Amino acid sequence: MIDKKILFQGKFLIKVLVFIVILYYLCIKLNIYEYLSFLELYINEIIITVALILGTLIFLDISLELIREFFEKRGELRDYPIFASVFKYITWFIAGLIGISILYNDIGSLLMSLGIIGAALTFALQRPIMNFAGWINIVITRPFKINDRIYIKDIGMGDVYKIDTMHTYLREVVGEPTGRTLIIPNAYVLTNAITNYTKGSPYIWDNVKVVVTYESNFEKARKLVLEACEEVVGDLMKELAEI
Protein backbone atom coordinates (compact mmCIF):
# COMPACT_ATOMS: atom_id res chain seq x y z
CA MET A 1 0.00 0.00 0.00
CA ILE A 2 1.08 3.56 -0.70
CA ASP A 3 2.05 5.49 2.38
CA LYS A 4 -0.59 8.11 3.30
CA LYS A 5 2.07 10.76 3.76
CA ILE A 6 3.47 10.16 0.26
CA LEU A 7 -0.05 10.18 -1.17
CA PHE A 8 -0.82 13.48 0.55
CA GLN A 9 2.41 15.03 -0.70
CA GLY A 10 1.65 13.84 -4.23
CA LYS A 11 -1.83 15.36 -4.18
CA PHE A 12 -0.45 18.59 -2.78
CA LEU A 13 2.21 18.77 -5.51
CA ILE A 14 -0.40 18.18 -8.22
CA LYS A 15 -2.58 20.96 -6.81
CA VAL A 16 0.37 23.35 -6.76
CA LEU A 17 1.25 22.55 -10.37
CA VAL A 18 -2.37 22.99 -11.49
CA PHE A 19 -2.53 26.31 -9.64
CA ILE A 20 0.67 27.53 -11.32
CA VAL A 21 -0.63 26.55 -14.76
CA ILE A 22 -3.95 28.33 -14.18
CA LEU A 23 -2.18 31.40 -12.84
CA TYR A 24 0.16 31.49 -15.83
CA TYR A 25 -2.78 31.16 -18.23
CA LEU A 26 -4.63 34.02 -16.52
CA CYS A 27 -1.54 36.23 -16.63
CA ILE A 28 -1.28 35.73 -20.39
CA LYS A 29 -5.01 36.02 -21.05
CA LEU A 30 -5.52 39.16 -18.96
CA ASN A 31 -2.21 40.69 -20.00
CA ILE A 32 -1.12 41.08 -16.39
CA TYR A 33 2.39 42.00 -17.46
CA GLU A 34 1.23 45.46 -18.54
CA TYR A 35 -0.10 46.11 -15.04
CA LEU A 36 3.14 44.86 -13.53
CA SER A 37 5.14 47.20 -15.76
CA PHE A 38 2.97 50.04 -14.46
CA LEU A 39 4.05 49.15 -10.92
CA GLU A 40 7.68 49.69 -11.91
CA LEU A 41 7.01 53.42 -11.63
CA TYR A 42 6.44 52.93 -7.88
CA ILE A 43 9.02 50.24 -7.25
CA ASN A 44 11.00 52.39 -4.81
CA GLU A 45 7.91 53.20 -2.74
CA ILE A 46 6.90 49.52 -2.70
CA ILE A 47 10.36 48.43 -1.56
CA ILE A 48 10.43 51.09 1.17
CA THR A 49 6.96 50.10 2.41
CA VAL A 50 7.76 46.38 2.48
CA ALA A 51 11.11 47.00 4.16
CA LEU A 52 9.49 49.26 6.76
CA ILE A 53 6.77 46.72 7.56
CA LEU A 54 9.23 43.82 7.81
CA GLY A 55 11.64 45.91 9.88
CA THR A 56 8.86 46.91 12.26
CA LEU A 57 7.72 43.30 12.66
CA ILE A 58 11.26 42.13 13.40
CA PHE A 59 11.80 45.01 15.84
CA LEU A 60 8.56 44.18 17.66
CA ASP A 61 9.40 40.49 17.82
CA ILE A 62 12.79 41.16 19.41
CA SER A 63 11.62 43.99 21.66
CA LEU A 64 8.57 42.21 23.02
CA GLU A 65 10.64 39.16 23.89
CA LEU A 66 13.10 41.33 25.83
CA ILE A 67 10.26 43.20 27.53
CA ARG A 68 8.61 39.92 28.51
CA GLU A 69 11.84 38.70 30.08
CA PHE A 70 12.12 42.00 31.96
CA PHE A 71 8.62 41.68 33.41
CA GLU A 72 9.19 38.02 34.19
CA LYS A 73 12.36 38.77 36.17
CA ARG A 74 10.52 41.42 38.17
CA GLY A 75 7.67 39.03 38.90
CA GLU A 76 5.16 41.33 37.19
CA LEU A 77 4.31 39.16 34.21
CA ARG A 78 0.60 39.90 34.52
CA ASP A 79 1.31 43.53 33.58
CA TYR A 80 3.05 42.48 30.37
CA PRO A 81 -0.03 42.15 28.07
CA ILE A 82 -1.15 45.75 28.64
CA PHE A 83 2.35 47.16 28.23
CA ALA A 84 2.87 45.06 25.10
CA SER A 85 -0.34 46.43 23.56
CA VAL A 86 0.71 50.03 24.22
CA PHE A 87 4.20 49.35 22.88
CA LYS A 88 2.80 47.84 19.67
CA TYR A 89 0.51 50.79 19.00
CA ILE A 90 3.26 53.32 19.62
CA THR A 91 5.71 51.40 17.43
CA TRP A 92 3.31 51.13 14.51
CA PHE A 93 2.35 54.78 14.89
CA ILE A 94 6.00 55.83 14.69
CA ALA A 95 6.58 53.48 11.75
CA GLY A 96 3.58 55.03 10.00
CA LEU A 97 4.95 58.54 10.52
CA ILE A 98 8.33 57.46 9.18
CA GLY A 99 6.69 55.89 6.14
CA ILE A 100 4.59 58.98 5.45
CA SER A 101 7.59 61.29 5.78
CA ILE A 102 9.52 59.15 3.28
CA LEU A 103 6.77 58.51 0.74
CA TYR A 104 5.04 61.90 0.68
CA ASN A 105 6.65 65.21 -0.12
CA ASP A 106 3.72 67.50 0.63
CA ILE A 107 3.27 66.66 4.32
CA GLY A 108 1.19 69.77 5.03
CA SER A 109 -1.62 68.83 2.64
CA LEU A 110 -1.54 65.26 3.84
CA LEU A 111 -1.84 66.27 7.49
CA MET A 112 -4.72 68.60 6.66
CA SER A 113 -6.54 65.79 4.89
CA LEU A 114 -5.90 63.44 7.78
CA GLY A 115 -7.24 66.07 10.19
CA ILE A 116 -10.51 66.38 8.27
CA ILE A 117 -10.87 62.61 8.04
CA GLY A 118 -10.04 62.28 11.73
CA ALA A 119 -12.72 64.80 12.71
CA ALA A 120 -15.33 62.92 10.69
CA LEU A 121 -14.30 59.59 12.20
CA THR A 122 -14.39 61.06 15.71
CA PHE A 123 -18.00 62.08 15.21
CA ALA A 124 -18.98 58.74 13.65
CA LEU A 125 -17.10 56.49 16.07
CA GLN A 126 -17.81 58.04 19.44
CA ARG A 127 -18.36 54.79 21.33
CA PRO A 128 -15.20 53.04 20.09
CA ILE A 129 -13.22 56.19 20.83
CA MET A 130 -14.64 56.30 24.36
CA ASN A 131 -13.68 52.65 24.80
CA PHE A 132 -10.17 53.43 23.59
CA ALA A 133 -9.98 56.38 25.98
CA GLY A 134 -11.07 54.06 28.77
CA TRP A 135 -8.29 51.65 27.82
CA ILE A 136 -5.75 54.49 27.95
CA ASN A 137 -7.09 55.37 31.40
CA ILE A 138 -6.66 51.75 32.53
CA VAL A 139 -3.09 51.69 31.22
CA ILE A 140 -2.10 54.97 32.88
CA THR A 141 -3.99 54.97 36.18
CA ARG A 142 -4.11 51.17 36.56
CA PRO A 143 -7.31 50.89 38.59
CA PHE A 144 -7.01 47.13 38.05
CA LYS A 145 -4.70 44.61 36.44
CA ILE A 146 -4.88 41.09 35.09
CA ASN A 147 -6.05 38.62 37.78
CA ASP A 148 -7.52 41.37 39.99
CA ARG A 149 -11.01 40.80 41.34
CA ILE A 150 -13.14 43.85 40.70
CA TYR A 151 -16.73 44.98 40.97
CA ILE A 152 -18.16 47.49 38.51
CA LYS A 153 -21.39 49.20 39.45
CA ASP A 154 -24.45 47.96 37.55
CA ILE A 155 -22.30 45.30 35.85
CA GLY A 156 -21.10 42.74 38.35
CA MET A 157 -18.05 41.15 39.92
CA GLY A 158 -15.34 39.02 38.38
CA ASP A 159 -11.66 38.25 37.93
CA VAL A 160 -9.94 40.21 35.17
CA TYR A 161 -8.26 37.90 32.66
CA LYS A 162 -7.95 40.07 29.56
CA ILE A 163 -7.80 43.78 28.75
CA ASP A 164 -7.79 44.99 25.16
CA THR A 165 -8.36 48.34 23.50
CA MET A 166 -12.14 48.01 23.42
CA HIS A 167 -13.18 45.67 26.24
CA THR A 168 -12.22 44.25 29.60
CA TYR A 169 -13.00 40.57 30.16
CA LEU A 170 -13.98 39.19 33.57
CA ARG A 171 -14.66 35.68 34.80
CA GLU A 172 -17.89 36.31 36.64
CA VAL A 173 -17.99 35.63 40.36
CA VAL A 174 -21.22 35.56 42.32
CA GLY A 175 -20.09 34.18 45.64
CA GLU A 176 -18.13 31.66 43.60
CA PRO A 177 -17.14 31.44 39.90
CA THR A 178 -20.16 30.99 37.62
CA GLY A 179 -18.30 30.03 34.46
CA ARG A 180 -19.71 33.02 32.61
CA THR A 181 -17.65 35.79 31.04
CA LEU A 182 -18.45 39.47 31.49
CA ILE A 183 -17.37 41.53 28.48
CA ILE A 184 -17.32 45.16 29.58
CA PRO A 185 -16.71 48.15 27.28
CA ASN A 186 -13.77 50.14 28.60
CA ALA A 187 -15.90 53.30 28.55
CA TYR A 188 -17.53 52.05 31.77
CA VAL A 189 -14.25 52.70 33.56
CA LEU A 190 -14.67 56.41 32.88
CA THR A 191 -18.23 56.68 34.16
CA ASN A 192 -18.71 53.99 36.82
CA ALA A 193 -17.31 53.32 40.26
CA ILE A 194 -14.92 50.37 40.47
CA THR A 195 -14.21 48.32 43.57
CA ASN A 196 -10.91 46.43 43.46
CA TYR A 197 -10.73 43.63 46.02
CA THR A 198 -7.11 42.67 45.33
CA LYS A 199 -5.29 45.93 44.58
CA GLY A 200 -1.86 45.84 46.19
CA SER A 201 -2.32 42.31 47.47
CA PRO A 202 -2.74 38.82 46.03
CA TYR A 203 -5.44 38.13 48.64
CA ILE A 204 -9.12 38.97 48.68
CA TRP A 205 -9.76 40.68 51.99
CA ASP A 206 -12.78 39.43 53.87
CA ASN A 207 -14.18 39.33 57.39
CA VAL A 208 -14.12 36.06 59.29
CA LYS A 209 -16.40 35.83 62.29
CA VAL A 210 -15.21 33.65 65.15
CA VAL A 211 -17.88 32.75 67.68
CA VAL A 212 -16.63 32.47 71.27
CA THR A 213 -18.98 31.49 74.06
CA TYR A 214 -18.98 33.12 77.47
CA GLU A 215 -17.57 29.93 78.97
CA SER A 216 -14.65 29.78 76.50
CA ASN A 217 -11.12 30.92 77.19
CA PHE A 218 -11.16 34.23 75.35
CA GLU A 219 -7.41 34.87 75.56
CA LYS A 220 -6.59 31.42 74.21
CA ALA A 221 -9.08 31.82 71.37
CA ARG A 222 -7.62 35.21 70.53
CA LYS A 223 -4.11 33.77 70.56
CA LEU A 224 -5.08 30.91 68.24
CA VAL A 225 -6.76 33.27 65.77
CA LEU A 226 -3.77 35.61 65.71
CA GLU A 227 -1.37 32.71 65.22
CA ALA A 228 -3.44 31.45 62.29
CA CYS A 229 -3.48 34.92 60.75
CA GLU A 230 0.25 35.29 61.25
CA GLU A 231 0.88 31.96 59.55
CA VAL A 232 -1.26 32.77 56.51
CA VAL A 233 -0.84 36.51 55.89
CA GLY A 234 1.65 37.70 58.50
CA ASP A 235 4.55 38.39 56.14
CA LEU A 236 2.25 40.04 53.63
CA MET A 237 0.78 42.36 56.24
CA LYS A 238 4.27 43.40 57.30
CA GLU A 239 5.22 44.16 53.69
CA LEU A 240 2.08 46.22 53.16
CA ALA A 241 2.70 48.12 56.39
CA GLU A 242 6.15 49.12 55.13
CA ILE A 243 4.81 50.52 51.84
Rank of each mutant, 00 (worst) to 15 (best):
I2A: 07
K11C: 03
F12M: 09
L17G: 13
V21S: 06
L23C: 08
C27W: 04
I43C: 03
I46H: 01
I48K: 04
A51M: 00
L52D: 01
I53L: 04
I58S: 13
F59H: 00
I62E: 02
E65G: 13
L66M: 12
I67A: 08
E69L: 12
E69H: 14
E72G: 07
L77G: 13
I82V: 11
F83H: 13
I90E: 06
W92L: 09
G96N: 07
I98Y: 02
L103M: 11
L111E: 01
M112P: 06
S113D: 14
G115A: 13
I117W: 07
A124I: 15
L125K: 09
F132D: 01
W135S: 05
I140K: 09
I152G: 00
G158Q: 02
D159L: 11
T165E: 15
M166I: 14
T168G: 08
R171F: 15
V174T: 13
P177C: 06
T181G: 04
I183T: 12
P185K: 05
P185C: 05
Y188F: 09
L190T: 04
N192V: 08
N196K: 06
T198P: 00
K199T: 10
K199P: 10
G200P: 04
Y203H: 03
N207T: 08
V208L: 06
V210N: 00
T213K: 15
Y214R: 15
N217I: 03
L226E: 09
E227F: 04
C229V: 04
E230T: 14
V233P: 01
D235F: 15
M237H: 10
E242G: 11
I243K: 15
I243Y: 12
